[in-house]
Write a protein that binds this DNA or RNA. Structure first.
Lengths: 344, 344
DNA sequence: TAAATTTGCGCAAACGTTCCCGTTTTCTTT
DNA sequence: AAAGAAAACGGGAACGTTTGCGCAAATTTA
């Protein structure tokens, strides 16, 4: 199947002009007369002329498209971020091209190659669960690929980044749980190699510390393997409940973990918040409809997508190499609901 | 910022060969000697050669990317579909390029232009809420753009399509509600111009008819305007509850409407299912965690994305124009939970 | 052993744009 | 009125690939 489209040549032939003149006329160049410009532009409109992006790209070495590398498109948080990215990109005339790593480092590597082989002008990345070092990104950055990290990022990479104030998120949530009177707050978190995890853990620890509570690391569950969350939580909970001082509250540090934690508690018929309090990250605007309504830490996901894209476009369109990088921080919102209200 | 990459020319220069030989050697052509091929391929690997997609695209008129046009990326149903699309596309070496209409016909038109101006090899579409006719798609199809519709589609378009058995979805759900003893089942649905809406309505009507119940159209709420769902449902519910025979159950015909309906009921402190039963479309795997656990019609969204993409790639890669079009139908799953269990 | 075929490679055009240089015509300037 | 400048346009190379054709050398066939 082929797709015939009008080119500059077609217009040139119809109007008895050269392709250079047509090209310039379409660009509203000063060295073309008013009348010729009008003729060309009218003709182009009539013939439904659209510049061939690949020809333009080949000349200009620009594609007007930006790549997105995330772990899972269907994760509501990421799809909200992508929504934000698209909204800015669309305004500025950029396409978005998406690849997902499914939390695999190998796929991250492959996708990066795939995207970076000059079919994108810039890259927006949230690294995979398995990613422990960033040399592959640095390599492409050094080759001139503008890159902005969001959500999951790292200190030892020189690049723009947009992230949540993760510390504040868990600090506030933990303080809230403590205020409610919970004494023994356990934590379920993702891979300890993720920046988000360490930041969230330290917010949690800080809050405990301030109350003179020392948290023992055995209370933490690290879900390092993607897809194993349910089983991990199940086993961990069993173990925790059997201890002499079982937790009276759980803080879940990612959306998926919050959901899976609630699911496990429900399956085991453990009442929330009666028997155990729950708070956690969750980026859905209907957490109020849960049983019980969930206390959540909400991220400005859409906003994060927008900010990251603005930074990236700024990078792409800058004339001279950028050496000063910005780290933008966005703020979480703690929405308190029944799941964390201690009943006396 | 520029992005230098090795080209075929560079390899040719290093190896003292012509570009044509290099090109052919990389394609494993039979008219190049074994040794030369090896030299070229080794050299290409060493220099990290990647073919320039735009140059290839310009020659071949293929981009190895497929466009996706949906109303909302962040809608969980669509993001699951996109997940399915990506999984197939990635395997076959295709990029995905996404645009969202935000339910606006004008944006649909603009995005279609944007995508179709030869930067994609094929298109996957779920039309906007406002779309009442399909001539714009037909126009691009006739120009040779392979197009596959999914979810929201139409009978009067000649193209592959993948859709849900919407009739079965609402028929089964309505039968279930009737079996539970609900007598007066109201319906909340989306725009009546959408294929999904009419099909879902007819499944609902058929089930009622079989029980000798005639449904009056005044019981239906049509949410035609995107973003107005909450207000519409609020007003409609108020009106309905004031009638002499208020509904004892509600069937919600899209994910968003199900959520908004539950939210409204909760806000008005109407007990489900005690005062009113609820069932509806919802594509989240944690509907069990709602209060009450929700009876839902689940769509195989991931599967839908996969099937649609397979059809599209088949279309793209077919030698001769395809004239026989397939309509594939996928089946919904009714998951019965507490929200629709009538209490006696 | 001469003719025919095969093997292996290079030349150059093409894909649709852009842009650096001309070249011609018209308009200023002195 | 002659010279210079500006205005308006065309020629053609280049971006990185692919591919039909041509051509020499090596190999097979009669």
């Amino acid at each position: 199947m082929k797709f015939e489209a009008t080119t500059i040549k077609d217009i040139a032939k119809v109007l008895q002009l050269s392709t250079s003149t047509v090209s310039r006329a379409l660009k509203d160049s000063h060295e073309i007369s008013k009348e010729t410009k009008k003729r060309v532009q009218d003709c182009a409109a009539a013939m439904h002329y659209k510049p061939n992006p690949m020809a333009v790209g080949l000349k200009s070495r620009k594609t007007r498209s930006i790549g997105i590398l995330v772990s899972e498109i269907a994760n509501p948080f990421f799809s909200q971020v992508i929504d934000g990215i698209e909204s800015i990109a669309h305004n500025k005339g950029y396409h978005i091209v998406i690849a997902q790593t499914r939390e695999s480092f190998d796929r991250e590597l492959a996708d990066l190659q795939f995207l970076a082989s000059r079919s994108i002008d810039g890259l927006l990345v949230s690294v995979s669960l398995e990613t422990k070092e960033f040399s592959h990104f640095r390599q492409f950055q050094n080759k001139g690929l503008p890159t902005v990290f969001f959500d999951r990022t790292s200190d030892d990479i020189d690049s723009h980044a947009v992230m949540l104030d993760n510390f504040k998120g868990t600090y506030d949530a933990t303080c809230h749980l403590l205020e409610q009177g919970y004494k023994n707050i356990a934590a379920i978190c993702s891979s300890p190699f993720l920046s988000t995890t360490t930041e969230r853990l330290s917010g949690y620890h800080k809050a405990l510390e301030e109350k003179g509570i020392k948290s023992n690391a055995e209370d933490h569950l690290y879900c390092t393997l993607p897809g194993q969350e349910t089983k991990n939580i199940e086993n961990w909970l069993e173990k925790m409940l059997a201890t002499t001082a079982p937790p009276d509250a759980i803080l879940c540090m990612t959306d998926k973990l919050t959901i899976e934690c609630m699911r496990t508690l429900k399956r085991r018929a453990i009442k929330v918040p009666d028997e155990i309090g729950v708070a956690g990250f969750l980026n859905m605007d209907f957490a109020e409809l849960f049983d019980p309504p969930l206390t959540v830490i909400k991220q400005p996901a859409f906003e994060m997508g927008k900010v990251a894209t603005e930074l990236l476009l700024q990078l792409i369109e800058s004339k001279r190499p950028v050496v000063q990088f910005e780290k933008k921080m966005l703020f979480p919102e703690l929405v308190i609901r029944a799941s964390s209200k201690k009943l006396y």
